[in-house]
Design a protein around this nucleic acid. Structure first.
Lengths: 187, 187
DNA sequence: GATATACTATACCGTTCTGTATAATATATT
DNA sequence: AATATATTATACAGAACGGTATAGTATATC
């Protein structure tokens, strides 16, 4: 709707990723976005509300990008899960990759009763369920089990890349994923 | 040396894990530890210094615990790497487990030039090298590759457990690790 | 008993934090 | 031209932040 609202949302997304959420004040956000606090608080009632929206949008963007990749490149269900980590590699090694929002947010807000932590946890769970759906469509028996293992590799690789850009961890995650997928298919 | 210094260090460790590092002020730390800021700043010159010491001690404690487990339970080098995830499971499912310091810290301090981020990154790298040493002692060819894969599973499982206590992720990480280790041995 | 050391108590400094109040200005609609 | 809406500019409240200064107390050593 509003271009200014989007600008604030995108600026906050970038600053949260590069400087941390708690270390980024609203004054910094509005200064970089080129607006004022009054406008920020018009669109986002609290900083927590802004954080939640940033997390939601980030995850939606990632999921849409991945859905599109899977739907345009893969046809058979078995192909989709086999190509999953190819696209994840593309995502992680992209120059614009700054980390995974829900992974960082859950670390900054460790209390399980905190709304930000809860959203992070939900996003992690939903992504795991997404993988599980891919697995069960490929007729894999223990779809949930494989999905959990693949999500561990995914989150581990993201973590490694957040710690050291260009770590190359995703290459080995891919190999491990292939082994786990092949093992689950031939069962 | 000083009981008070240890008390501050332990209190900070606990508060950083349960509330986050940036969300925990020095006033809170001294209040919970039952001392004053003057004493805290006598032993730790800055908050950053305290954070670095907390990270170092946490990692040393984990590594010592793991070393002891491996040396008393396993004899042959191949047994050590095979039992590694049994002990990691024991560690993660222990009631006192509150998360992995270096994983959370790297998320709270995402800038790679930040000393806290650098220490986190170093600790992650050193733990990976520790696994690699276990692998090469077990005569595994691509020891570094396997170590990287196992560390992804480890960090992924820790991440999952930090997001949701009792997630059960470690059980599936263990299965995946067994598959990867067996695959690497028979090569 | 004098002296050093460890620690407490408390007040404070300057800064930053989230969030709001008020007034002025630009822009679009009628 | 009048009016509504969006946005800016600025100042401020109230709290929390990291860190320091000062003064006083307890405890152990000589």
């Amino acid at each position: 709707m509003s271009a200014l609202r989007d600008k604030i949302l995108n600026t906050a997304t970038d600053l949260f990723q590069t400087r941390g959420i708690n270390s980024t004040g609203v004054d910094t956000i509005v200064a970089v976005a080129g607006t004022t606090k009054m406008t920020l608080y018009k669109y986002f009632h609290t900083k927590e509300g802004l954080i939640l929206e940033v997390l939601n949008k980030s995850q939606q963007d990632f999921q849409s990008w991945l859905d599109n990749k899977l739907n345009t490149n893969s046809k058979a269900p078995a192909d989709k899960i086999k190509q999953l980590f190819d696209f994840i590699e593309e995502w992680i090694t992209s120059p614009s990759f700054l980390g995974m929002g829900f992974i960082k947010a859950s670390a900054e807000f460790p209390n399980e009763e905190n709304p930000i932590h809860q959203l992070s946890s939900k996003q992690s769970r939903e992504f795991r369920q997404f993988i599980s759906k891919l697995a069960s469509e490929a007729n894999i028996k223990d779809a949930d089990g494989l999905a959990l293992q693949l999500s561990l590799l995914f989150e581990g690789a993201v973590q490694a890349e957040q710690m050291k850009r260009g770590s190359g961890a995703i290459k080995y995650a891919k190999k491990a994923a292939k082994l786990l997928i092949d093992g689950a298919i031939n069962q």
